[in-house]
Nucleic acid binder design. Structure first.
Length: 264
DNA sequence: ATGGTGGCGGAGCCA
């Protein structure tokens, strides 16, 4: 059995106490973090080592973005892509080399895309679409069983948002983004593992904005985080859990961790 | 229609 977690942590240094709590309580084999907001030189390697997570692949950046994958089972860095073609740290890939060997885990932080869903008025929106376009080209060439996880910054289904109607023109849920994400999915035949276990139209959120006193008020969440697998790998998934309680922890991230278990 | 909060780093950018 191999378990993999994904969590947009919004500063790994500030959030290390709750990361430690999560790893102690849930003990996933592999943890993929997004928005670590630090460079490799100041990544808390020792804190992860002390928790038994002695294998690391860190693609950091000063102040913004940044991803890291840590593991308590053997793995090694496999790839680093710059799908935005601008030097931002938004991807790191690893391959497991012990249990679950042959499995590749791609950890990605898709650009949020700014506020206006129009690439003419808002270059960030265009960059988001282009990032996904390059990811789609890459996905068409994958030759190994792969799990891609992370903050996709898109909630594709109506049941992935608190109000489909009110979010149709809000970046993350526009029909154009949903279409571009679908093209990415079709390029490899990715299976949306989370939705295999929490089936549409059941409510599934992974993010709640900081901009409200209590995130529970109105439950205005979105599913921005995903775990998608190659078909042969998805067939081996045995469970999937959304740890919503972490949103209510001390000094929380605005995202919560997802965990998938595989019978490998 | 608007503004609401948070992190980094020490102003303004990003989300």
């Amino acid at each position: 059995m191999v378990s993999v977690a994904s969590w947009n942590i919004n500063s790994v240094r500030l959030r290390m106490p709750i990361v430690a709590q999560f790893l102690t309580e849930q003990a996933p084999d592999v943890l993929c973090l997004q928005e670590i907001k630090t460079v490799e030189e100041t990544f808390p390697f020792e804190a992860f080592n002390a928790l038994g997570y002695t294998h690391h692949a860190v693609h950091g950046q000063k102040g913004y973005h940044g991803v890291a994958t840590v593991s308590r089972i053997p793995m090694k860095e496999f790839s680093r892509h710059d799908w935005q073609d601008n030097g931002e740290a938004r991807h790191v890939g690893v391959e497991l080399t012990g249990a679950g060997q042959d499995m590749v885990i791609e950890n990605v932080y898709v650009p949020a895309g700014g506020d206006i869903p129009d690439r003419e008025q808002n270059p960030k929106f265009g960059q988001k679409l282009d990032f996904l376009g390059r990811m789609t080209d890459w996905a068409g060439k994958i030759a190994r069983p792969t799990l891609i996880v992370g903050d996709f910054n898109i909630a594709p289904l109506e049941s992935d948002v608190w109000s489909h109607k009110q979010l149709l023109k809000v970046v993350s849920h526009t029909p154009l983004e949903v279409e571009v994400l679908k093209r990415f999915q079709d390029a490899h035949g990715w299976v949306d593992v989370g939705r295999e276990f929490i089936r549409d139209p059941e409510r599934y959120f992974s993010w709640w904005s900081y901009r409200s006193k209590d995130y529970r008020t109105g439950d205005r969440g979105r599913r921005l985080d995903h775990m998608w697998a190659s078909p042969e790998l998805a067939a081996k998934a045995t469970s999937h859990t959304v740890h919503e309680d972490c949103r209510g922890w001390e000094k929380p991230s605005d995202h919560v961790p997802l965990v998938t278990e595989f019978d490998l």
